[in-house]
Write a protein that binds this DNA or RNA. Sequence first.
DNA 1: CGTTCGGTTGAGCTTTGTCAAACCGCGTGG
DNA 2: CCACGCGGTTTGACAAAGCTCAACCGAACG
Lengths: 246, 246
Amino acid sequence: MTDSCIVKHFSHYANLTGAERALLAALEDHPEELAAGTEIRSVGHRADHFFTMTSGWAYSYRMLRSGDQQILDLYMPGEVMGLREIAFEDSLCGLRTLTDAKVCPFSQSRIDEVLASSTRLTRIFMLVMARESAILVERVINLGRRSAAEKLAHFIAELQARLELIHERPENEIELPFSQAVIGDILGITSVHVSRSFRLLKEKGLAGFERDRVVIYNAAALRDYADFDRAYLVEDQSWVEDAPVL
Amino acid sequence: MTDSCIVKHFSHYANLTGAERALLAALEDHPEELAAGTEIRSVGHRADHFFTMTSGWAYSYRMLRSGDQQILDLYMPGEVMGLREIAFEDSLCGLRTLTDAKVCPFSQSRIDEVLASSTRLTRIFMLVMARESAILVERVINLGRRSAAEKLAHFIAELQARLELIHERPENEIELPFSQAVIGDILGITSVHVSRSFRLLKEKGLAGFERDRVVIYNAAALRDYADFDRAYLVEDQSWVEDAPVL
DNA sequence: CGTTCGGTTGAGCTTTGTCAAACCGCGTGG
DNA sequence: CCACGCGGTTTGACAAAGCTCAACCGAACG
């Protein structure tokens, strides 16, 4: 109970009081171990739970009539899934594990209690929603206005930045537990073209795909090439801190 | 004070009590009249206000190094702008009027008071954020996985659905107070290709561009062609209604 | 009546997709 | 230990979608 995954994650945003910690920890039923490729939640099903990732990777996606899928966002250890649909009856996108993973499901009614009893925790939930939104905005810009290679470069830069926030140190080698086809489904291009774009980035000395990992040769140049600005990953924590503690 | 724009808009989501109405109305300083093309808020500036549209159209956008812009979302009368950035210090995208418009700005500190004092209003704010998010999700799918003509068809179908929610009756002629270049900036294609895509839709008997308006010839077929499902525009109002009134 | 702005159209080019083959590392079973 | 197959990556040839540039058109407006 002392270091439940959500308490640990939310502590990132504010110095939680004992009461707040207890409220959050009470949300947690029990973590579930899921195999890679497990459907966590399907499109159209009641959106009455949300989830935190304890370990592993997952993604939200939407299937199209044509049979291919668009991946909306990746989720990494510590992140919260499903909050985006809190105001909808049925979920608007699917949720699926990418690797073997441990997730903690929370029921919506329990969240509702928390919202009613803590202003600061409410703000953290809103912050998480705003963060998801900000990432989606970047996805829109990436999909709408960049070439395939720029999309890929931006994706790599984002991955590095997000992992740095989790691991608290920059990494120039990122192990990718998924295929280039998945990257294609994120970037809206084919896996063949992902491969070609990697070659291009390698020729430019920015980054390359080696075995099962991305190796960043020149992070600053990569970010510049992708026009990447990490501001959208940096929330204003003072907004939470300054809230009445209640 | 009796029918301030935000009270009117939020009443759409719940049967507000007198106290709630007063709280909301108190938020409102005074509406501002803005000419078409006015920058409401710039990228990088403090995101310490948000806005409701009383009349006219506006859009949020992001400028790229290359000089072209990606439009993220359109805002129509009654909608709330800027909530997406509530947890960020600086705004992540620009906000600009598309037509002459009347907007009501609210300061963030006033919102904070409301969040602290009403659970139901807090949920409405979260609902608005979730709605913005859902629209962004559709934008991502549109940009990532559809042909130009399908993108355009989806955009028209969305426009029709959103206007129907505002005017409470379906319209098969939609006056567009902006050029095809703007549509291109929304869909991530060039204005030339917007024109070509309109021709294609017309040939298919789905919709056409006439003078300054879109005319929908066959709404059902248009939605089918675009794989449009309005679920993402239909929030779960019971979530707000069932909240403790406080 | 001329100018301007947005829309339309065509020609040629660039980017990306499609399809198919070759390749490569890895695990499996003989 | 080797042959095989499998999943994922790479490459090449070709097709399709979309972009660019330029010309043209038509309506609105001075």
